[in-house]
Amino acid sequence: MQQNPPAAKKYQTYDGLDLMKAMAIYFVLIYHFPIMEVDFIGTGKTGAYSNFFIFSIFST
């Protein structure tokens, strides 16, 4: 019996690139709405340093 060939995908997708895009948009949202304290100069809070460190990944 002849089998139908598998339907070709219209667009090639890459799971890794999907993951990168999802991460990137999440980074943007945290970076644009920083309700956590990052301003260690203005507030002098020690906790702001750790937030500032994590914020460095949002340069990506």
Partner: peptide, 8 residues
């Protein structure tokens, strides 16, 4: 004298 914008 102010916190640098480490993102943009």
């Amino acid at each position: 004298g102010e916190t640098w914008d480490i993102g943009f």
